[in-house]
């Protein structure tokens, strides 16, 4: 059986990132899923290994480097390069996260592989790996494969539902790696505080607000509905530019691409760039005062009306259904 290496992003407190389960799930369909994780020397690897086993890692390669946490990307690249040398995998999977994209790009150059990015699915086709991509906001689907070297594939977060069976106590192999040359240093770091809400790119429900909310104070209505539905908060670029909410909430061409079960657009006109980030949602609801707003072209349930009338009524109707 071939080996499918999975690079593990870690959270600020050293646990496998949310993307891990889907990566191991995808890897299990391609070969023996082997997790590769770079840690600072002295890290408690047994807790980490059992967490990775629960998510489906058959084995865990732990690479120790003193630079982990203080240097951007290159310790992880050295870890993966060493693991590739040892495991001779048929594919390497990484999250299409900001951290992992740097790792994937550098790794492809270092090991003479080739990169396929932002895959929404991966599948084995004989002895090759085919990646599926969703382009221009879902207007096109393409498939790609790598020729002449190792496929290194970044996977869009929240796009793969497959999960690997849990492994009780995966074997742990330790490596020690070195980082050479000039490095990008992390001087100080503040972890993103958990909001208590699901993460935008993987949430099943997203409630997003636009310019139509009118002010940062009034944007609270979006958060209220998101909380009532257990969803994440999103925003149009116009709402971000107007300062109603932090840029991390931006959905669209230049923000996060989301594909939740339910997307509710409040006071969003639906510029083509916004639609590019959300039009593959399973169900789209839109509320806007302007009947000609382009968001209605993609909405399964559209309401021409005032969000400040409709949403409070929706909230109380939801409340009475509980």
């Amino acid at each position: 059986m071939t080996t499918a290496l999975v690079h593990i992003d870690l959270t600020a407190d050293g646990a496998p990132a949310d993307s891990t389960a889907a990566l191991l799930g995808a890897a299990a369909a391609l070969g023996e899923p082997v997790a590769v994780v770079a840690v600072a020397p002295g890290t408690d690897t047994s807790t980490l290994a059992s967490a990775l086993g629960r998510l489906g890692a058959a084995r865990v390669v732990v690479a120790e480097a003193t630079e982990v946490g203080s240097v951007i990307a290159t310790p992880q690249v050295s870890a993966l390069a060493a693991a590739i040398d040892r495991e001779q995998p048929s594919v390497v999977l990484l999250a299409h996260s900001i951290e992992s994209r740097d790792v994937a790009g550098r790794l492809a150059v270092r090991v003479g592989g080739a990169l396929a990015w932002d895959a929404v699915d991966v599948a084995a086709d004989g002895d090759r790996v085919v990646a599926t991509h969703s382009l221009f906001g879902g207007a096109y689907a393409t498939t790609s494969m790598v020729e002449g070297g190792l496929p290194i594939i970044t996977v869009r977060q929240g796009s793969i539902d497959a999960r690997a069976a849990a492994v009780a106590s995966p074997a742990v192999e330790m490596l020690s790696v070195e980082v050479t040359g000039a490095v990008a240093t992390v001087e100080s770091s503040t972890p993103v505080r958990p909001s208590g809400r699901p993460e935008l790119r993987t949430a099943k429900v997203v409630v997003a607000g636009g310019r139509g909310l009118g002010s940062p104070e009034r944007f609270a209505l979006v958060e209220q509905l998101a909380d009532a539905l257990g969803g994440a908060v999103g925003a149009s670029r116009a709402a971000v530019d107007a300062g109603y909410i932090a840029p991390a909430a931006q959905v669209g061409q230049t923000g996060t691409t989301v594909a939740p079960d339910l997307y509710i657009a409040l006071g969003i006109s639906g510029a083509i760039q916004h639609k590019a980030g959300m039009q593959t949602a399973k169900t789209i609801v839109a509320i806007n005062t302007d009947a000609s707003a382009p968001i209605f072209e993609v909405a399964d349930f559209g309401i021409v009306g005032d969000v400040f009338q409709v949403v409070p009524q929706l909230l109380s109707a939801l409340e009475s259904r509980r």
Binding site: A17, E187, S188, S189, T190, P191, E199
Partner: peptide, 11 residues
């Protein structure tokens, strides 16, 4: 700013 942290970085 990454998905998990905001950092001051230099090179």
């Amino acid at each position: 700013a990454t998905e998990t942290a905001t950092s001051i970085v230099s090179a």
